[in-house]
Amino acid sequence: MAKSSKLVVARKGRVLLVRRRRDKRWMFPGGRRRAGESERKCLHREIMEELPKLRLGELRLWKEVNGKNRRSGRRMSDAIFLGKKASGPLKIGDKKELDRAEWRKPRGLKLTPTSRYIRDKLFPK
């Protein structure tokens, strides 16, 4: 079972990304799973915490990513979910963790390692 869950949803050539306050890196929304929580429930909880006004359509598990970041040595363990659609305002719920949420093109941004991996696999140049 993956340690974290991430959401990937795209519309009109842009993807939904959030920016961490502490290092200004962009990432796909989501977060760490709690004990006894499924990956899907983790994703729903994290979205409610991070973007409480966002409404999600159907979700489908794309892939579980398990690997080691070559730069940092940090282990990745993420369940990546694809959303068919998302609607509603991008109002930040956890302002201590995040400072922005936007529909952005996935290139030319300072992304977290896991988000770079997802971008490169799902949105190749």
Rank of each mutant, 00 (worst) to 15 (best):
K121Q: 13
T112K: 15
C42P: 12
I80K: 02
I92E: 03
P89M: 01
L61M: 05
K53M: 09
V8I: 10
R32H: 10
S115W: 13
H44P: 04
P106N: 14
Y117D: 10
W62M: 06
E49Q: 03
L54Q: 02
G88S: 02
G93E: 03
K96C: 01
S4E: 08
L56D: 00
C42R: 01
K12G: 01
K96P: 01
F123L: 12
A35G: 05
R20K: 12
A2W: 13
G36D: 05
M76C: 05
L61F: 11
L59E: 04
P52W: 02
I118Y: 05
K6I: 10
A101F: 14
N69V: 02
K3T: 01
G88V: 00
L16Y: 05
A101E: 11
E102W: 05
S77E: 09
R22C: 05
S5F: 12
A101Y: 13
E64S: 07
K53E: 10
A86W: 02
F123E: 09
P113Q: 09
C42G: 05
R14P: 13
I118F: 04
A101P: 05
S87D: 02
H44Y: 10
L16V: 07
D78V: 13
S38C: 06
K6P: 06
R107S: 11
L61K: 13
A35W: 05
T114P: 03
E50D: 10
I92K: 01
K121D: 05
R60K: 06
I47Q: 11
E39T: 15
D94C: 04
G30S: 03
K125Q: 11
R25P: 07
